[in-house]
Design a protein around this nucleic acid. Structure first.
Lengths: 169, 169
DNA sequence: TTGATTTCGTTAGGGAGCTAACAATATTAT
DNA sequence: ATAATATTGTTAGCTCCCTAACGAAATCAA
């Protein structure tokens, strides 16, 4: 199966944008890439919620927090927010929801009265053991059109983009 | 500048995940790719709002709607929602906000009493002429670590991912 | 020790995202 | 023509997301 057999034609938006935009000095390829990154993210987000998360009273954000907790075991709030890429005020709400459904709970820091630690409950751990492979199967499905080398190349390019933004938060 | 000179090492999350996850039959590369797509999207979203959009009372979603309207001229609501990748109920709120700031307005359909058409105001058009190149410069900055061929390859792979999901909404 | 500054988590207010239910209008069936 | 069905946009309820302001606690200064 050659590369030509696969559907990689431009989306409607890209096509129109290409024609509409010639008055400005625009980088259409950069625009298309970022725009399509958003499309993939939204698509994955919605599909994951609908297929696997909703029935467990879990949102995608809640899952992300549980994912980090599952990987790291436990974590202090401010670090958890940073790792999830959300504001600290947002994390408060998400942890409230997770606590309501008893997937996680808060603990006070031993020596510092300001800090709180979020830990995974047994129920949360069990759920993650079940959800993690399911979500990964969805991820696998999303990139099934790419071969091993292409997938590695995609990962490399995304890391380049991320690291080139490190300085300007 | 060779490929080796650029920072494309794995993120902390990827590294930890790789070690924690060996009990399951997981595709770590697929996980890393999707996860990093989300990171790029969130980073771009926040940066665009902070740098260019906030000062005009515009959110990223509001900008997206204006962007589609600017490209297509005008559009019926249900189609606009679909093109933006959001639910119709969500679009109602966004158009309310856009109307409040007079960037866009609703018109009734000529023959079908159910349908509404959203059109860009003069104020919205002027703003987009200014914002469009600014956002594009941010997009350009995001992919500045990739050369022309790599960027084209990235776009091609993202399109493959998107089209391979076409069947399962 | 006392006072100023910093850090951490929560809260409040605005906007965005979903689903489900609803009213209004169109379309189709009988 | 009338009834049943389908479609469109809005609304309500919940969650998420941001920023800004706040209180509590820790740290630093003098």
């Amino acid at each position: 199966m050659s590369s030509k057999d696969r559907d990689d034609s431009k989306t409607i938006q890209e096509r129109i944008a290409t024609t509409h935009v010639k008055d400005f000095d625009l980088d259409v390829d950069a625009m298309a890439a970022i725009s399509n990154i958003f499309r993939v993210a939204v698509l994955f987000h919605n599909l994951a919620e609908k297929r696997f998360l909703q029935k467990h009273n879990l949102t995608f954000s809640g899952f992300t927090v549980l994912w980090v907790l599952w990987v790291f075991g436990r974590m202090e709030s401010y670090q958890l927010a940073k790792e999830c890429g959300i504001a600290k005020g947002t994390l408060t709400g998400i942890v409230n929801t997770l606590e309501k459904h008893q997937f996680a709970m808060r603990k006070s820091h031993a020596t510092d009265g300001r800090r709180k630690i979020v830990i995974l409950s047994r129920k949360g751990t069990d759920l993650m053991s079940k959800l993690f492979p399911l979500i990964n199967s969805l991820e696998r499905g999303f990139v099934r059109g790419l071969n091993k080398n292409e997938l590695a190349e995609l990962g490399r390019m995304l890391r380049i983009i991320l690291h080139s933004q490190d300085n300007l938060s």
